[in-house]
Design a protein around this nucleic acid. Sequence first.
DNA 1: TAGCATTTTGACTAGATTAGTCAATGTTGA
DNA 2: TCAACATTGACTAATCTAGTCAAAATGCTA
Lengths: 214, 214
Amino acid sequence: MQSKESPTALKFLQIPEEAKRDKILNAAMKEFRYGYKKASTDAIVRDAGISKGLLFFYFGTKQGIYEFLLNYTTNLMRSDYFEMLNLAHRDILEGFWQMSLLKRDICYRYPYIYDFINAAIIYKADIPATEIAQNLLSQQNAVLSELYAACDTSLFRPDIDSQKTFNLIYWAIDAFFGDIDSKIDDKWNDENYEIFLKELREYLDICKRCFYKN
Amino acid sequence: MQSKESPTALKFLQIPEEAKRDKILNAAMKEFRYGYKKASTDAIVRDAGISKGLLFFYFGTKQGIYEFLLNYTTNLMRSDYFEMLNLAHRDILEGFWQMSLLKRDICYRYPYIYDFINAAIIYKADIPATEIAQNLLSQQNAVLSELYAACDTSLFRPDIDSQKTFNLIYWAIDAFFGDIDSKIDDKWNDENYEIFLKELREYLDICKRCFYKN
DNA sequence: TAGCATTTTGACTAGATTAGTCAATGTTGA
DNA sequence: TCAACATTGACTAATCTAGTCAAAATGCTA
């Protein structure tokens, strides 16, 4: 009853060990970081520690891997962003704080997920299944707009353009993540988690003091 | 008297037309954007509009191209940063303003130079001639430290850590550049130059009002 | 005009890499 | 013991790789 071509990569989803699944996903995200064409399936299997045959047993084709990855990451981000939007106070700094916690969790599990998603957006030229990538892009932009719309800008200093204030806060957090990422080689672990949270909180406090009323 | 192996790519520097030189440099930077191994010399010549033979006539080997590029960009950045440090007022916002003007000029001429340099720093693993790349990295870090050292932090609000204030300003400018880059497809031209300057100035003014005394 | 040096070409090579296959082997549970 | 499934890795044909080189184009001098 089960077709040979498995468009939803059923076989892959049936792997019982989550750790193995994630190892394959991470290897694939890492390799697709620079777009579709430059990625090598040999490199993926080498990195994931599985055989060539198994990868194609799971996904059928290279394009199959890529499309599964696009869907997987899109859904992951979508559910997390929705959660964030629900949690978010109208105080945008609290919203960003929640988002940062989610982002940190995602990056801990999938260190290359943002690289992968950015590549999908930037290098759409050499990528198949563009509709999905396009969706992803508009979705990402939509989240920022929604956040801004939900944000109580009356908390901001009245003498400064609130969209620009919003951008400055967003950029600060984004750059802080980038800075941390470049400093940590083995990416995230539990001991630098606390340091990270403490420092991030300090930056958010500065933003509050500088960009908010009083 | 002239050796067959030309380590300094003399032949290339002797090209009279600057436009042709830049076209080759840009094609190479674009292709080396993801590190050394993933770059294809075929792609470079295709993009630069020259023949395969000519590229190797200029640079000898693929590694020759890469090393020349590393040297070229390092020197370019070094001279510009030195100029900036001289120009920089002790008011860091004015220093960043000068830096932004230089950066814009560089990106106008070499759209992929920052991608190239970042790749050299991040993916040092797959790159030959690591000493040069290492130099580049420490140089880049040194510039930020020098800027901070030269900066008159007494202009900042006294109730906020001045290193963090410095970082926030730097990050804002950096993210602003990134944001502009992602919006402009054909990168820079003369008409969006004015818009860019105006908006950047606005962000710097906000920084002044929020992070400086009074 | 001829003649020489320099610049430029692109077809060519040998070797590496590519996505994808498949018969064989390992593993599981009943 | 056996059958269903998971996993392997050597293998292929096609493409891509860095680098070569004889030939052609161009510029320069006289």
